[in-house]
Amino acid sequence: MTNSTTDMSAHPLNVTAVIGSNRHGRFGPVVADWLLDRVRDRPDLALDVVDVAGTDLPTDLAPTPEATAALSSITPKLAAADAFVVVTPEYNHSFPAGLKNLIDWHFTEWRAKPVALVSYGGLAGGLRAVEHLRQVFAELHATTVRDTVSFHNAGSAFDADGRLKDATGPNAAAKTMLDQLTWWGRALREARERRPYGE
């Protein structure tokens, strides 16, 4: 007799990485490329990516046809995810408006799913953006994992080719964060299979 819980645990966890920056000359892709490699290294995780800079999301309740098309391409990726990793810079002590817009255009897609947070910035390393995101995701019934990865003075942490000058600490922090995300992702996926959230 097959144990269905074991089968669900063995099935790779669908993780959608959200790249939250959209400014010209952004540093986000450098951090995101490093993170995506860490996720791809894990056979227990299946990766998809949503890049805020590559979307034309509406900013009001009367979306253009282009914005409607953008939503139709993004929403299925978020809905199919078992878990999320959000990569965010810190703008004015918080996270970018484009990322907030992406989050706000969705609701059920985030519910009862875990979110890991990777931040970068200057002296604070984007941690103030992380703390604001924790409040936002709590309102959406998502669970943020405890451990994060943050890059303080991020520009000096990577070389000209986008490689970390010293990957030891960040790689260890990413493993801890992704281990937590995987535990929560499996636990919540199994819970949603047994009973839809909110019932």
Rank of each mutant, 00 (worst) to 15 (best):
A70V: 08
T68D: 11
D56Y: 11
D56C: 04
W105T: 12
L127P: 02
G98H: 06
H106V: 05
A53Y: 13
H93Q: 13
A83S: 08
D51V: 08
Y120Q: 03
G126P: 00
D104A: 05
W110T: 01
F84N: 08
E66H: 12
A70T: 15
Y120A: 01
A81D: 06
S119W: 00
A83K: 01
G122H: 05
L102Y: 12
L71Y: 06
P76E: 03
D60W: 02
I103F: 10
D48P: 06
T64F: 12
E90H: 03
S94V: 07
G126W: 02
L102I: 13
V86A: 10
A124Y: 09
G98I: 02
A83F: 12
G122W: 03
G125D: 01
T108E: 13
P65N: 06
A81T: 07
L102W: 13
A53K: 14
K113M: 06
A67P: 09
S94H: 06
F107S: 12
L71G: 13
V52P: 01
V115H: 09
R111Y: 06
V49I: 15
Y120E: 00
L71M: 14
V49L: 15
S73E: 15
G121L: 00
W105Q: 11
W110K: 00
R111H: 11
F107C: 11
G121S: 01
A81F: 10
D82E: 12
L123C: 02
P63H: 10
G54A: 14
G126N: 01
K77D: 06
A124G: 12
S94D: 15
G54P: 10
V85E: 08
A124D: 12
T75Y: 01
